[in-house]
Design a protein around this nucleic acid. Sequence first.
DNA 1: CGATGAATATCGGGA
DNA 2: TCCCGATGTTCATCG
Lengths: 251, 251
Amino acid sequence: MTAVEDGLRLETRERPSHGTARDLVAEAIDTGALVTVVGRCTVDYEGRASSTLGPGERLVMLKPDGAALVHTDEGQQPVNWQPPDCDHEARLADGHLVVESHRETPEEHLRVDFEAVLEVSAYGLTDERDLSLEGTEEDLRQRILDEPHLIEEGFVPLATERGTPAGAVDIYGEDAEERAVAVELKRRRVGPDAVGQLGRYVDALERDLHADREVRGILVAPSVTDRASRLLAERGLEFVPLTPTGGTADD
Amino acid sequence: MTAVEDGLRLETRERPSHGTARDLVAEAIDTGALVTVVGRCTVDYEGRASSTLGPGERLVMLKPDGAALVHTDEGQQPVNWQPPDCDHEARLADGHLVVESHRETPEEHLRVDFEAVLEVSAYGLTDERDLSLEGTEEDLRQRILDEPHLIEEGFVPLATERGTPAGAVDIYGEDAEERAVAVELKRRRVGPDAVGQLGRYVDALERDLHADREVRGILVAPSVTDRASRLLAERGLEFVPLTPTGGTADD
DNA sequence: CGATGAATATCGGGA
DNA sequence: TCCCGATGTTCATCG
């Protein structure tokens, strides 16, 4: 089976000279292609923090939206990077291909200096990027709004993202006895941080509403850690086990 | 200028047949090479959540440590991925190259189905990966341990990462009047979450120590947001502006 | 293996 | 633009 012509743009050079590599990278940046450069290089970053990386073999990706990624043979995360909206540049310095990426606000600069270039490729890519994702906190919220009794019998949601001086409450409502209820949602097992978050909202609501009005705080998540459970008890907060999808909590 | 032979392994096919692509990807996985496959594809993920991605042109990277990345032409983050320690597999299905990546604990599966393959490359990469990074929270901690007066005159650090029922305090110490002090460090401007964190530690320490002993809580960061500042005041906590590097706080 | 919190976190929504 | 919180966060460290 032979691949048919498909209109996808592609330009590749194996083991190019540094000059050829520079020209191809520079052209690809200009034409809005996605570029990969693989070779032995050093990397320097200066900006929100600063870092240096000694010689090693890596894959550098330059995206047309201005993002830059330096990947080694290990790890899901790039060892160095630059966020979108940066300006990329390819140049020769001391006979080496040097790729630089820069932005302001904040001032950040990435420099990759190649001592050997294994391959340079430029791809003209287009993507609709219509990702459909399920199992998020949003799904959990909708599930509760559809079936409020999942929280408890008589629970009535009154607002989502209700503002307080401490931040927005995921779901604000009332229980069967018309007590105010703040619900904090998490799509996965939670630790102490989520308890602190809920506690801040409850405190803020108790200040906001009349001081004599009781405010219940309910954490909704598949499960909680021991420490979080203890913190909930200390603060008089409650926990309701629930998953975004309706599956069992697999902790 | 011509690149010299450098021992770096490289295997590339432009617009290969799906069968050729499958063979090359499978061999590269076996030999521990880093693989890139560029082409038009759909992506399905099922695991901690689930997602589907319709047809589009993307770059798929398979790392020898088991990580997988699907990158579009936009964004610093991959649109889909799989963490390290997954098992990669390349197969033909309905004449299409299909790349799959799987792991257990948790059960997660990624499937990329190519309808067109623009290029397949396999790179044999090695990397020492000796990244040196400055400007981290660790740097801020060391700066304070070296010069405790940066917190205030008379401050004495007694422990780092001191355990409490609510978590570990970054720096625990005493002030000039021998009051207990909990210090929470952040390398950058902080919001309400950091105040909640510090508050939990202070509460826990006040329970741990004798109830009559006052515990001061000090947040150390380049700057704070308005809301965080208000929360600090409400809880009787303090703020000391300080950067990891000693530079000025650029908020 | 789980828990905990840092990160050049990134990303999207809202004011 | 900044603030704020979610994320299939990932990652290192510690118990």
